[in-house]
Design a protein around this nucleic acid. Structure first.
Length: 335
DNA sequence: GTTTGTTTAAATCGCT
DNA sequence: AGCGATTTAAACAAAC
């Protein structure tokens, strides 16, 4: 049974729980917690603070009527259509996970994560330096986010960010308002993952260096012999439901190939076992022209696909389906 | 110069 | 009070 997590629904749920739980309702009826801040639903991820008695208090730019009496029945509520200028009750981790999960490939560059948040939550259209710094901190600090080097055929600034597959269930019951526990990789897992990602980055650099040192024949370029590998558009932003392909799972055993371009250019070795089942290769970059691909590009793409496909067998089905209407957005928990 | 990414430190808050 | 999760600030480096 899908459940909407729009803010207004959250408020309704708070009131429902107040009725259900006498003990809880006594606290909620007061309207404030011990610190005088807003009261969160039991077990909920602590909503991003909107009022602090500290130096941060000055940053709360909401009207005073909104800042007080947060849980009274006359509490000003955001409309069902939008959070308006109110700070959404999602942590940066949750917001980032939403952004990543909303993308077709389940991975996004930093700039796109920013855009996702500012597009949907007007609160974050101001003071961007502050929250973006915090968000970057979260990306780096939390093991649940994995930085995947860009494919050589998708140049641009910064890497892609994805969710570690083992972190899919860090939000309790799929709710973005709750988090069971900070997701932490064991050192061995982290080392293994970092080694793999570093190797991929090294491969990408080598690929680009070789491409730079041995530029493609101009005749070939001009005649369309090679795809213009550096100008393929980024993936379509339309959210679609696709099997997950975007995270890395070092625990997935698979044949390894040497991290050399030459090795990767060799024909794909036959696999004796069909497990994991043959994964469809990600669609080729959407270049305007169907051109014979550069062999190095093929190698790079093949490795990248191999890297990402290795975890498929262990991936959980998507927890959330992103639905977007023009003004408000919400997540549906797949049952 | 700007953006991206890493790291450290401190503050806040909810829970036990 | 202590702990863990989160937020915020800041310094710094690397990449573009």
């Amino acid at each position: 049974m899908p459940h909407d997590w729009r803010y207004a629904d959250l408020a309704d749920m708070m009131y429902a729980r107040r009725r259900q739980n006498d003990k809880q309702s006594r606290r909620l009826a007061i309207g404030e917690n011990a610190q005088g801040g807003p009261t969160a639903p039991p077990g909920a991820l602590r909503p991003a603070p909107t009022v602090r008695a500290s130096r941060h208090a000055a940053r709360d730019v909401r009207p005073a009527s909104t800042r007080r009496n947060q849980n009274r029945d006359d509490m000003p509520r955001p409309t069902r259509d939008s959070y308006g200028d109110q700070k959404p009750p999602f942590s940066y981790i949750a917001l980032t996970a939403m952004a990543i999960w909303s993308s077709p490939e389940r991975m996004l560059p930093l700039s796109e994560i920013y855009r996702f948040i500012t597009d949907r939550f007007p609160y974050y259209r101001r003071n961007t330096q502050r929250w973006q710094n915090s968000l970057r901190h979260n990306l780096s600090f939390n093991d649940c986010f994995v930085k995947v080097p860009r494919r050589p055929d998708r140049p641009g600034k910064g890497a892609y960010w994805t969710l570690h597959p083992q972190a899919f269930d860090m939000f309790e019951n799929g709710s973005l308002l709750r988090r069971r526990k900070r997701f932490k990789l064991h050192k061995g897992e982290k080392d293994s993952l970092n080694a793999e990602l570093a190797a991929l980055a090294t491969f990408n650099r080598a690929f680009l260096a070789r491409q730079a040192n041995a530029p493609l024949p101009s005749a070939s370029l001009s005649s369309g012999m090679y795809a213009p590998v550096t100008i393929c558009p980024r993936p379509s932003p339309e959210p679609i439901e696709v099997p997950d392909t975007s995270a890395l799972l070092p625990a997935c055993p698979r044949p390894r190939r040497a991290f050399t371009i030459d090795a990767l250019l060799e024909p794909e070795p036959n696999r004796s076992s069909p497990s994991p089942p043959a994964q469809p290769q990600p669609p080729p970059p959407r270049c305007p022209l169907a051109l014979p691909p550069n062999p190095y590009l093929v190698a790079a793409q093949r490795y990248h696909a191999e890297l990402l496909a290795g975890l498929q067998q262990s991936c959980l089905p998507p927890l959330w389906t992103w639905r977007d209407t023009s003004q408000f957005s919400h997540y549906t928990l797949n049952s």
